[in-house]
Design a protein around this nucleic acid. Structure first.
Lengths: 358, 358
DNA sequence: TATTCAACTGAATCGAAGT
DNA sequence: GACTTCGATTCAGTTGAAT
């Protein structure tokens, strides 16, 4: 079976998953039923009625029934996930603990639990609990110590004002224009997620061209965000009404131009430059002095790109490590050369070579 | 067996719990082992070593072993909890899902999951995940639809600047002076919780004089916060060193004076004032007009404290509900009387009576 | 005295490619 | 699979000394 870049499968989640080949998707995002178990009607202080999630698809006979359904779809997701793929599942305290245990028991390796802090949650009208102001996402790799998963660390850091992205994300609910409406103008889906949430998930854990699978597609937020970000997607949805609205919605999405999809790349991915190449390029000469950050240790450059410091000699990394009696050292940031404006890390010289200025 | 207001039991958690009588504690706070499953040493970018949690008490052979331990102590906690008591358990993604499922399976009814957002978490040094910047607390009642549990809603609201307290709490780690040290000046416990966290938990979910049980007492943060807030406590701790430090620490705690323990009371707990009493007190007279919030509906007061609006008559609540065609109505906030400064809710008159000004 | 800076640290499932 | 090599990677808060 072959799937195009935009695939919506209308049908039962388990049956549709069974039709997907092993190790064929890069990222799974799942927003399963929460099994809410609500009581009677809830009225606001002004007597208006809260539009509760009472849909048939959220009804389960027992915790056992919910667990067995959860394990079934998670197991299939794990099968279709590539070895370097990851899965995200969102939930609330009603179901997320059961989901988390299933994730662990099936052999996934949890990477983070991420908190979606709602900036505008519904208050607790009765004053009986804390305002339920967040939902929880579980992010997991296919297995412990498996292949390296995709995590666009630097893109996330950039998106968070140059600070590491934390495990708590503050985002508003999906409201207003973004909320998909029926022909009658009513909200089409009771639990539509904000596209900003999916944007961050997809940006963090996939690359352009990757395949994103959403087994509970609803009105297609995952598809819309994936298309916008230049990813392919497969969405599975049982309710024909939701699927139709999703198709219509996604058709209107304009994907970002390829150039706009570039994100901050990891330094690990940049081409490797041996230190010797800095000497070959004439940016440093044999005999030149290199200094540690504070300047009290001095090493000399040799023609082959090795350093000498007293009795010690070896690569910039090894000599740096030995000089500090440390187990390891990044020589590029440890060693400095003398400039007009004081000491500067030799990493600046590497940047010149990479830029073709060497 | 009789326990004083400050009890520390040195010994195995399960054995000690077995010695406590049924339905004898009002609140349980539990900070169990997290079962971290860390890998090798972790070095910071400056090559210093992270002081990891590698204590023997955090080691479990398998998820099954952890689950069985978790269910055992949770079951005992449920037995010793009063019917109107609640339990709090704190954990991270390593264990909290397993704890949550055990809580649900044992018949507890989850009220909230609360996120402790750390303002100063340890970064992710390797750039491989999101900064793990939070922990999760589960708050649960003994059973669904059981006796009304203690929740000091108004005290929480007051503590949160007149806004409902949300399910995410931003608090710093336990550091500096607060961190308990050994005689050698080292940190005594690897995972000491901030007292501010316990302060909020105890203030939210117990009353002065209540008994708070902590089955994993450690260096006694729960005891210190409980004593400060005028609650009794029972702490269970296996490690003699921790217990000794806890005793010493708690001995130095000065409890708040009884008057300082008064918190914002619930309106529900205030003495009930029948509307007729407002008329009796002369704050309104028979025949006076009452208005709905926007003023377009007018009712008249009768001598017995009933209202008349056209064909309708009855209590302030019933007439208010019928006037709006609503199932219910709080007449105290719905009906307004005319004052120099415009319309004001009749709840202001009730406040006057309560204050003895009627 | 006010301000600056270096050093230290906290429940962490913490690398990847080549030989 | 074990081992080696290269080299990438940190934020908020506190403490205490130096300026």
């Amino acid at each position: 079976m072959k799937f195009g870049p935009e695939t919506i499968i209308e049908g039962d989640c388990l049956e549709a998953l069974a039709g997907l080949p092993d190790k064929s998707v890069d990222l799974v995002f799942a927003d399963p039923p929460y099994n809410l178990q609500l009581g009677g009607d809830l009225l606001r202080p002004d007597n208006s009625k809260v539009d509760a999630v009472d849909d048939h698809w959220d009804q389960f006979a027992s915790f056992e029934a919910y667990d067995s359904f959860t394990r079934a779809w998670l197991k299939e997701c794990r099968r279709v996930l590539k070895d370097d793929g990851t899965i995200w599942v969102i939930g609330s305290y009603h179901n997320i603990f059961r989901v988390g245990v299933a994730v662990q028991d099936l052999g996934f390796w949890i990477l983070n639990d991420v908190i979606w802090r709602k900036s505008n949650p519904m208050p607790n009208f009765k004053g009986t609990r804390f305002t339920n102001a967040h939902e929880t996402l579980i992010w997991a790799a296919k297995s412990r110590g498996g292949k390296r998963y995709t995590f666009n660390y630097d893109a996330m850091k950039m998106a968070n004002d140059e600070l590491q992205m934390r495990s708590d994300w503050t985002l508003p609910l999906c409201t207003g224009e973004e909320r998909i409406k029926t022909a009658e103008g009513l909200k089409a889906h009771p639990t539509q997620k904000p596209e900003a949430l999916l944007h961050r998930v997809i940006l963090a854990a996939s690359k352009p061209g990757d395949v994103v699978l959403d087994p509970f597609f609803g009105v297609g937020t995952t598809g819309a965000a994936a298309k916008r970000l230049g990813r392919h997607f497969i969405g599975i949805e049982r309710e024909a009404d939701y699927a139709a609205l999703a198709r219509q919605r996604i058709a209107a999405v304009i994907p970002a131009a390829p150039g706009e999809l570039d994100v901050m790349g990891s330094k690990r991915a940049e081409p490797r430059i041996p230190f010797g190449q800095i000497v070959e390029a004439g940016l440093l000469r044999p005999g030149d002095k290199l200094y540690c950050p504070k300047g009290e240790r001095v090493a000399r450059v040799r023609a082959d790109g090795s350093l000498v410091l007293g009795e010690l000699s070896g690569s910039i990394h090894k000599v740096g490590a030995m000089a500090q009696a440390a187990p390891a050292c990044n020589g590029w940031t440890y060693w400095h050369f003398r400039t007009d404006r004081g000491l500067a890390p030799i990493d600046e010289l590497r940047a010149k070579v990479r830029a073709g200025l060497g």
